[in-house]
Simulated assay, not measured.
Amino acid sequence: MQQFATTSTAAGWARRHTADVLAQWGLPELADDCCLVVSELVGNAVQHAVPIGTPATCRLVLKLYTDALSVEVWDPSPDACLHPREEDVLAESGRGLAIVAALCGTPPRVFTTPGEGKTVVAVLPRDRIKSL
């Protein structure tokens, strides 16, 4: 588990941490797709979970299974609804959850605990990674 301040640099630090963990696990080939998922989920936590300027943290947990890699991002927001935007080909943002769903084969899941925030979980099946 690694914590990050919900600042504009959180996603970058989370990607670095993810690449380091995967290298330590001897799985650098998983880094590109996993870092993209981590970046999107941490970025969403920073952008949507807390009001701008409010000091808070988010947590990243990576779990390796025989057939999958789980990316779990906790933030203090009780809002369990992920808000995918309608497709706008000219928009500069709003495609992150669609990218995560494409890489994982399913949309991320959200788990909440009243008064304790939410955890967004995306599972990358190892046989899908780099096969898209």
Rank of each mutant, 00 (worst) to 15 (best):
V110P: 03
T7P: 00
P107T: 10
D67W: 04
W74H: 14
T57D: 05
G105S: 05
E116L: 10
V46R: 08
S77V: 08
G105H: 01
T112Q: 13
S131A: 15
T113G: 01
A80G: 15
V121F: 00
L60N: 05
R95M: 09
A68L: 00
R126Q: 09
L27V: 00
A11V: 07
K63F: 00
T57A: 10
V50M: 11
V42P: 08
A56K: 04
E87G: 06
S93G: 00
T66W: 03
I52M: 01
Q3M: 01
Q2I: 13
P114N: 05
T112N: 07
R128T: 07
L60W: 03
H83R: 14
K130S: 15
L41D: 05
P107M: 12
L64S: 11
R59C: 04
V120Y: 03
P108A: 08
D75C: 10
A11W: 02
L27I: 01
A68Y: 03
A56E: 04
L27P: 00
R59H: 05
M1Q: 05
L27T: 03
A98S: 13
T113V: 15
E116H: 14
V110G: 06
A101K: 05
L103Q: 04
P76D: 02
A49R: 02
L22G: 10
N44A: 02
V38P: 03
C34I: 10
C81T: 14
L62I: 09
K130T: 14
K63E: 08
A19T: 14
A11H: 08
L97Q: 11
R126C: 03
C58S: 14
P125N: 09
V38G: 05
W13G: 10
T6K: 10
D127R: 12
P84T: 11
V100I: 15
D75M: 01
G53Q: 01
T112G: 07
E72M: 09
V120C: 05
C104R: 01
W13M: 03
G96N: 13
D32R: 10
G12H: 08
C35D: 01
D33A: 14
T54A: 04
Q3S: 12
Q3A: 10
V46N: 03
E86W: 10
R16T: 15
T112L: 11
C81H: 09
V46T: 06
R126S: 02
S70A: 13
L60Q: 07
A14C: 11
A11G: 13
R109F: 00
D75Y: 07
P51M: 02
E29N: 09
A91Q: 14
I129E: 00
T18C: 06
L62R: 04
A68R: 14
V71S: 02
L103M: 10
R15N: 12
P108T: 10
G117V: 13
A49W: 03
Q2C: 09
C35E: 12
V71G: 01
H17V: 07
D79I: 15
A102K: 11
G43Q: 02
S131M: 11
T6V: 14
D32F: 06
G96E: 13
D20Y: 08
K130H: 15
V38M: 01
P114A: 15
